[in-house]
Simulated scan of single mutants.
Amino acid sequence: MPVFRNLAAGRSIARRAASVALAAAALVTGGMVGAPGAQAATGGYVALGDSYSAGVGSGSYISSSGSCYRSTLAYPYLWQQAHAPSSFSFVACSGATTSTVLSSQISALNSSTAEVSITVGGNDVAFASTMQTCVLSGTSDCLSAVSAAENVANTQLAAKLDAVYSAIRSHAPNAHVVVLDYPHLYQVPGSCLLGISDTSRSAIDGAADVLDSVISREAARYGFSFGDVRSVFAGHEICSGGSQWLHSTTLPTYESYHPTAAGQSGGYLSVFTARA
């Protein structure tokens, strides 16, 4: 949508101009005020999304977040510590779909929100049940489940993301928005001697590509920044050896197939920081 691109570009220019002006003022008055060692950011930051945004898999969960499993080692929490935004709303939640983002997270946004991050869509295409099928059943069942997930991504996800992105723009008209995607789960061929077949692993990685392409395309329609984490995670997938940034099947089971603390800091945080 050209109108959204033009509006986003204008806001981006205005936001950067405001940042330059504030930085100059800070230098005159003796420096920016913020957390020790932090690079201060203007405006509020809101972190939306699902378990990949909440930090499931990285541990150090915030007790008050309950079953959302928000982590102090998740990239949104780490970024706000380093940049000291004027406010921080961490509402990402494990299990979130596009519908639950609309019903329970969008309200955190307002006209003073300056920065937004989001990863969502995996649960809309039944990521968890697809992985369960692939792990517990054979290759044939896995390929069928992956194909079904890809079909949902190709036929239904765009409209659902459009509703979310439109709501973000409506509720936070002045915000810079970064949409992050999902990494490949497996290195193929890799070092794993047991588990699902390489055929299944390749199919799962291919499904991530389908999902990510839909996310990228819809983010571009709104002029949002797109953060592709796949290249950063390359060499750190499951079956990559000693430097994995993703859990395989593990306990607690809800951490399975999610980034570790290293995946949040080395993967997601680095990509988000480069685009924030």
Rank of each mutant, 00 (worst) to 15 (best):
T199V: 13
V135P: 08
L27C: 13
Q187W: 07
E237H: 03
G57C: 06
G227M: 01
D228W: 09
Y75D: 05
T119V: 06
G263K: 11
T98V: 03
V101P: 05
G37V: 01
F224V: 00
H247N: 02
Y77L: 07
A220M: 12
A96Y: 08
P85S: 04
S240H: 02
S12D: 11
C68H: 11
H83I: 04
R217N: 13
V20C: 02
Q80S: 10
V135D: 09
A114N: 05
N123S: 12
A14S: 07
A14F: 01
A159P: 10
S19R: 13
A41G: 14
S111I: 05
A47N: 07
V28D: 12
A21K: 03
T249W: 06
S107I: 01
S265I: 14
H236V: 01
F4Y: 14
T42Q: 13
R169K: 11
Y268C: 06
S202C: 01
C192I: 00
A207I: 10
A14H: 03
A261F: 10
Y182P: 06
I13S: 01
A148R: 08
L246T: 05
T119K: 02
T155E: 05
N110D: 13
C134R: 13
I196F: 02
A18K: 09
Q132T: 15
R16A: 07
A40P: 10
L180A: 14
L246F: 07
V101C: 08
A26V: 02
L157A: 02
H171P: 00
F272V: 05
Y254F: 13
F127P: 08
D50N: 01
N151E: 10
G49I: 03
Q156S: 14
V177T: 15
A219F: 07
F224Q: 07
